[in-house]
Nucleic acid binder design. Sequence first.
DNA 1: CAGCATCCGCTTTGATACTG
DNA 2: CAGTATCAAAGCGGATGCTG
Lengths: 214, 214
Amino acid sequence: MRSYRQYCSVAKALDVVGDRWTLLIVRELLLRGPSRYTDLRAGLPGIATNLLADRLRELEQAGIIERQDAPPPVATTLFRLTARGEELRPVVDALGRWGIPLMSETSPDEAFRSHWLRLPVEVFLVDRAPDEPPVTIEVNTGDQPMRIEAADGELNLRPGRAEHPDASLTGEPRPVLGLLSGKLSLGQARRQGVQYRGDPATLARVLPETVPVT
Amino acid sequence: MRSYRQYCSVAKALDVVGDRWTLLIVRELLLRGPSRYTDLRAGLPGIATNLLADRLRELEQAGIIERQDAPPPVATTLFRLTARGEELRPVVDALGRWGIPLMSETSPDEAFRSHWLRLPVEVFLVDRAPDEPPVTIEVNTGDQPMRIEAADGELNLRPGRAEHPDASLTGEPRPVLGLLSGKLSLGQARRQGVQYRGDPATLARVLPETVPVT
DNA sequence: CAGCATCCGCTTTGATACTG
DNA sequence: CAGTATCAAAGCGGATGCTG
């Protein structure tokens, strides 16, 4: 990116991460941890492959990411954030929070990736029953199944199907996210095609109080 | 800006404010409050005038700024942030904080505007003697004199010269900022051409504890 | 003068094809 | 898997001109 040539820390930050796609690459590495080139591409639908290569080079030069050659069993290159790159989390978080009201507008041509659920899960969900036994809610939306785990007051989102989920949630990204962000009740989400199997109390355990589950 | 077409709040935020210059325009309005077109231009050295006009139109359409026709005595258009625009403050702040380490690298062709001091002043300075009488420190660097006022534990930065400043600080932006951010001692700053007049205790009142004033 | 709009050369991006 | 190569289209920067 062409520098703004301003002696101001905001301008200087944007000199480094203000380029198109750059902060979305950082988002991917924050959400997924160390990733292969191909996985980054999959998590960044719409990016041109040469641009991804360019940006990765620039990010490496700026000290934000580093390459790591994985040992023989994997035998591939991993890209990971450096400590300085991790420090961009407040920037990505602030953007993500500011963007939440924009999530009500969506169009059918928008792509969705299941691991992006981590952002709203971190923002909206809480374990409201830390003293009860752990629960797992399977979430089926987007490209791969994910599971929300609530245990000891901590929440976690992981990829993959659960063996014996306490509940499962299936549907289009928009109503599923509407439900998880407290903007839709379970009934409203169902009317928008969401299927929920399990005790509503399981879902209520992780949802904010704003909206009744019914 | 071309949309990323991703159903993710970070991508959607960047769809709106990810364009070149957009967040710097927001920075100006956050730092200066409602501003005229000409003042925005002056605070954004390097922007092409048509781009500023384009961005202002886009920001207005996105509900981030609004135009306000000032009454006859001024008789000009003011641009101001809406409530939604003010909510970008955490984004600009996060970028500004992340960019602070980049401020040690500077080049002679970089522009500086005095009101940009507000950002580091808010981040670094504190009133460490809230019970003592107010003090004013005049700061002479950049395009116009500014003054730092410490009173009742509150800090303020305002444009304009002070009538009877308790101290005054004059020099190039880089060492002045180094001093105000605690990276340079007063002695080091002086060796880099900074002139300080007044009791060092006045300066020590607002500086963080990290570095001795001597 | 404040607040733009137009024009033009250059750089960046996007889409696709191709390679070690 | 992890990129490069190519090329058309869009965006940007700089200069200049217009209008109340």
